[in-house]
């Protein structure tokens, strides 16, 4: 089991977790994700890793409470264990030294875009960051993104912050003022990523998006996360999660992501009426972790790590 060392609210419904997962922390590269199962009756969901500290052996996840599992996760507190965390999965972002890169984060997508922005900046790339949210109180990681870019533009759909309302409005301005953009990376809702792709396509600007397909195992075994690129089928878990934004069949992705909508709503309704049913599973694994602390520390610690 994997201990939550610290967690804190970043915005309403958005929480940051530091989770002890030494092996994942050792290997993490920006762009990669983990699959999490909160308790024994839980589903497996992919969550992109926002940051990692290989020395402390922790990874950072930023979770927006949208469905049952993410809302359940956001009820967890410091010192509680998560049943399963596996990763890092997927391919890392390519952190070359580009001339200028525009990194766009929409909503909680900002958390996913952040480590790549930082990696690009450290590689010597000029990073222009655009982050957006529905309203100012939902903006996350503004300070981090400012530190990971030469220029940060903040957008709010409702105009609660001065400036452009949509990330595409901001991108339009950047495209006008920047003489040459080598890459645009967009992470956020499907509609946003599609809109960005539509804007950059006529200009031939290389554009990449990180796709949040539904997954089960995350290792290429089930094919549930298949996405279509041009005429080719790809698995988001092992071939992605980043893809050429101009090739993605967004309609198909949106349809497949809606496939379980009714069941997801039923699950969420049940959880909101009886959160105690799930919190019992959590309490049970807390007791287990108290009785057998070794299952918290050991499972993901290399056995002879002290020797090296």
């Amino acid at each position: 089991m994997f201990l939550i060392e610290r967690c804190e609210w970043l915005a309403p419904d958005i929480k940051r977790f530091q989770i002890r997962a030494p092996r994942v922390a050792q290997k993490f590269q920006p762009g990669q994700f983990v699959i999490v199962r909160v308790h024994d009756h839980g589903e497996r969901i992919p969550l992109t890793i926002a940051d990692a500290d290989p020395v402390a052996g922790t990874i950072t996840l930023i979770v927006q409470g949208v469905g049952k599992t993410t809302k359940l996760m956001n009820r967890l507190a410091d010192g509680q264990p998560i049943r399963d965390v596996v990763g890092p999965l997927g391919n890392p972002s390519q952190l070359h030294r580009y001339g200028t890169v525009v990194v766009i984060g929409g909503g909680v997508g900002t958390a996913i875009a952040y480590p790549t922005a930082l990696g690009l900046l450290r590689a010597g790339t000029r990073v222009v960051a655009i982050i957006g949210a529905r309203t100012a109180s939902l903006l996350i990681m503004e300070d981090e993104m400012r530190a990971a870019s030469q220029l940060l533009i903040v957008t709010t759909d409702d105009g609660s912050r001065p400036g452009p309302r949509l990330v595409t409005d901001a991108l339009y301005e950047v495209m006008k003022s920047e003489p040459k953009i080598d890459l645009v990376l967009a992470v956020g809702p499907i509609g946003m990523m599609r809109a960005v792709a539509d804007m950059t396509r006529p200009h031939g600007i290389l554009t990449r998006v990180s796709l949040n397909a539904i997954m089960v195992d995350g290792t290429g075994m089930c094919g549930g996360c298949r996405v279509v690129m041009g005429h080719q089928t790809r698995f988001a878990c092992v071939d992605g999660p980043e893809f050429d934004a101009h090739q993605v069949d967004y309609d198909l992705l949106a349809q497949r992501n809606r496939a379980y909508r009714e069941m997801e709503q039923e699950s969420l309704r049940r959880f909101e009426q009886h959160p105690d049913w799930d919190m019992q599973w959590v309490a049970e694994q807390c007791r287990l972790a108290e009785r057998h602390p070794e299952i918290l520390v050991n499972p993901n610690t290399p056995p002879n790590s002290e020797a090296h």
């Binding site: 009756h41 839980g42 589903e43 497996r44 049952k68 599992t69 089960v216 195992d217 075994m221 089930c222 094919g223 549930g224 349809q255 497949r256 809606r258 496939a259 379980y260 069941m263 997801e264 039923e266 699950s267 049940r270």
Partner: peptide, 27 residues
């Protein structure tokens, strides 16, 4: 949606117990 690989269909049920949804979360 509705077209599965056997791996996915069987994993959802055997490993994740989707047959017992909503007592188990995986649909």
């Amino acid at each position: 949606a509705g077209v599965y690989s056997a791996n996915e269909f069987l994993t959802r049920i055997n490993l994740m117990r989707a047959d017992q949804f909503p007592d188990y979360d995986e649909p």
